[in-house]
Computed example of a mutant assay.
Amino acid sequence: MVFKNLNIGNNIKNLFFPEVCLGCNNFLLQGEEVICTICRNNLPITGFSHIHDNQAYKILYGRVRIEEASSFLWFYKNTIVQQLIHNLKYRGHEEIGTFLGTWYGHNLLESPFYKNIDIVIPVPLHPKKLRKRKYNQVSNFGKAIASILNISYSENVLIQSKITSSQTTKNRTERWLEKSMAYQTCDKINLNNKHILIVDDVITTGATVEACAKALKKEQNCRVSVATIAITA
């Protein structure tokens, strides 16, 4: 009887406050969560989790030693993926990170390349930016992946010690110069012989994850892999 009442309550709530797809803004149908079935079927999945020498890996190749690198979706402007990233990053829809992280976590679980990960960590936000936004947009994505892979998750491994400005108008060299000194590891955490999976939202030039990986490798004897929600096409 309790469950019946809950279902009635949910139906009434959906009647007056219908949930919308965070990809296209159309109303969600019963059984749909976060994004509608049409948007889900139209997401441009890369398939990188089963390809070692993929575009995400190639972006970082020769710049920093990376074991594996992968991105879930292709990022194009004025598309569902851009809308999802915008809603996740600027409109407080953290459920998008959980939804995509759970989905991608199962892909990584089935991949032959992500069997020995010890800990998942997000690219950190500077404390000032974190206070303003109130959340790290990749936290839930990383937590969901860690849960599916049944491994640890921590937000205390890396620290962004220097705040960086918007990267959208900078070229690769400018991004690298600004990012290179922005991250450092926490001295209290021992990562010797650990395999770390860094998660981020979108990889464009790779400057951010490169800086994070170099910070980890500078002070710890560890291996680093990368997984992002999307990669620019």
Rank of each mutant, 00 (worst) to 15 (best):
Y135M: 08
I163N: 06
G92Y: 06
N136H: 03
S161P: 08
Q184K: 11
K115R: 09
G105D: 03
G97V: 09
R175D: 05
T102Y: 04
L149Y: 15
V120I: 03
L149K: 06
S139N: 10
Y135Q: 10
R133G: 03
S165W: 05
R133N: 05
A182N: 08
K89T: 13
N116I: 13
I145K: 05
L177F: 13
W176D: 14
T169P: 04
R91A: 09
P127T: 02
L100K: 05
Q160G: 06
A146L: 13
Y104P: 01
L100F: 08
Q184A: 11
S165Y: 11
H86K: 15
K143D: 02
I163T: 11
G92E: 06
P124E: 02
N171K: 07
K128I: 07
K134H: 08
V138Q: 04
E155G: 12
E174T: 09
K89G: 13
N150D: 10
K128N: 05
N116Y: 13
G101S: 01
I121H: 05
T164I: 15
Q137E: 00
P112G: 01
I159L: 14
E178D: 09
I148S: 01
H106K: 10
A182C: 11
D118N: 10
A146C: 07
H126K: 08
N150E: 08
G92R: 11
I117W: 00
S161H: 07
I151C: 11
P112F: 00
E174Q: 12
N107R: 05
L149M: 09
N156G: 12
Y104Q: 02
I119K: 00
N116F: 14
T102P: 00
K134L: 07
K143V: 11
S139A: 11
S161V: 09
L88P: 13
Y90M: 14
V157W: 07
L88V: 14
K134S: 12
V120H: 00
N136W: 02
G92W: 05
I85K: 06
L158I: 04
G97K: 15
Y153I: 03
V123G: 02
N87K: 13
I151A: 10
V157Q: 15
I85G: 10
K179H: 10
G142F: 08
T102W: 02
N87G: 14
K162W: 11
N136S: 03
Y135K: 09
I96G: 03
R172S: 14
F141Y: 12
T168G: 11
G142R: 13
W176G: 08
N150W: 05
G101Q: 00
T98L: 12
L158R: 04
S152Q: 10
G142E: 07
I119P: 00
K143N: 09
V120C: 02
K89C: 15
K143R: 14
S139H: 09
K129T: 03
G92I: 06
T173E: 12
T173I: 15
F141H: 04
T102I: 01
M181P: 01
Y90G: 08
S147D: 12
I148R: 15
L130H: 03
S147H: 05
I145S: 07
E174S: 15
L125N: 00
K115V: 02
Y135S: 13
L130Y: 07
E155T: 06
L108S: 04
I151E: 14
N150M: 10
K115S: 03
M181N: 09
L158N: 04
D118W: 01
T164R: 07
V120F: 00
